[in-house]
Every structure is written in C-alpha cells, then in structure tokens.
C-alpha cells in the first residue's frame, strides 16, 4: 500500500502470519515475563528456559498488532540458543536500530512503561546505527533489519519494542536466578 511499504515489509507480514516460537513453557522451571503497551493494550508474555547462561528455549504468547507480533517472532529467532551476553548485545543493536539510545532497552532501566516518548535518552547517547552496533557486538540482526522502517512511524516504535522490553526483564530475572557462583 502506498505510504506503508516501509512499515509493512513482506518479511514482517510473514512473521506476523507465521509467528516463530509461539506458545508457552511450563513456568517454573521456565522464567516468565509479561509486558503491556499502555497505549494500545497489546500484551506479550515471554517464557525463557535457561541452560547455564544459554537460552535453550523461548516461547512467546500474548496478543498484539502486526508490528509487535512480528518483532517478537523475529526476536525469538534471533536470541534462541544464544548466551545471555549475546542476547544483551542483540537488544543493544535493536535499540540502536530503533533510534533508542541510552538505557531504555538494555534491561537495566525502565523505558517500557514511560509516557508518550519514543524512548529514554541516557547519559551515554549512542549515535551508531543498529548495523554498526551489531557488528561491534558480534551479533546479527538478520530479519530484524526489516523493522527499521518503523522508525518513520514514531507511534509504532512502542509496538516494535514491547517484546524487547519484556525480554530484557526476563534476562534480568535469569541473571538473578543464576546466582553469585
């Protein structure tokens, strides 16, 4: 549709129609985190199964628009089988791609429930692109790069980032659970 090509890329619609890693895991032992988009009511639930510091399985439940659902689907594909550190790196790369700088998305801040802004700007503002951050961190955004067009639709950025905020929360839990050993 004219005007919406950048938003609704074919690969996004594919992930929306055929979401990867959709479902639930028994919790416990799986970690469970939920996120809400206060603007539109979208909900996402992430189940995370850890083996040491590796995400051995990950399932996504909840309801939402094509952008939030496809972003969650692509995210699940990108971080499943990866280590906690790699998942954090992917979050940072995605955050840069969404032009969200600072602490909003890395799991050590709370950008998820903020007001109308498109993301907090932290002290160490990072102007690198998502691809640059991904390269520097040694991870690949892959299909996720299709979500770049969302930046032109500021209202929808929160749709795209909902599952990432929720993943960050789940990773925080995973790190807490890993204990000090």
């Amino acid at each position: 549709m004219p005007g919406l090509e950048d938003l609704y890329r074919e690969i996004i619609l594919d992930h929306y129609r055929n979401p990867r890693n959709r479902g639930e895991l028994e919790s416990p032992p799986a970690l469970r985190a939920e996120g809400f988009n206060p603007l539109c009511g979208d909900e996402v639930v992430i189940y995370l199964a850890m083996g040491g510091d590796v995400i051995t399985d990950l399932k996504i439940a909840g309801q939402g628009c094509s952008i939030s659902q496809s972003s969650a689907s692509m995210m699940s594909a990108a971080v499943k089988g990866k280590t906690l550190a790699q998942a954090r790196s992917t979050i940072r790369a995605f955050r840069a791609m969404m032009s969200l700088h600072g602490q909003a998305l890395d799991g050590h801040g709370d950008g998820a429930s903020g007001g109308g802004g498109t993301g907090a700007v932290g002290p160490e503002e990072d102007e690198r692109t998502g691809a640059e951050v991904a390269a520097a961190e040694g991870v690949s955004l892959g299909d996720l790069e299709a979500l770049q067009g969302v930046v032109k639709f500021p209202v929808r950025i929160k749709c795209a980032t909902l599952s990432w905020h929720t993943l960050a929360q789940a990773l925080d839990e995973a790190e807490k659970g890993a204990g000090p050993d």
């Binding site: 979208d42 939402g64 628009c65």
Partner: peptide, 12 residues
Amino acid sequence: VHAHDLSQVLDQ
C-alpha cells in the same frame, strides 16, 4: 486485522 494495523491503513 489488529486495530492498530487497521487504523494505520485508514490513516493513509
């Protein structure tokens, strides 16, 4: 079609 997506289409 999710309401958000529908609204985006209608905006066009």
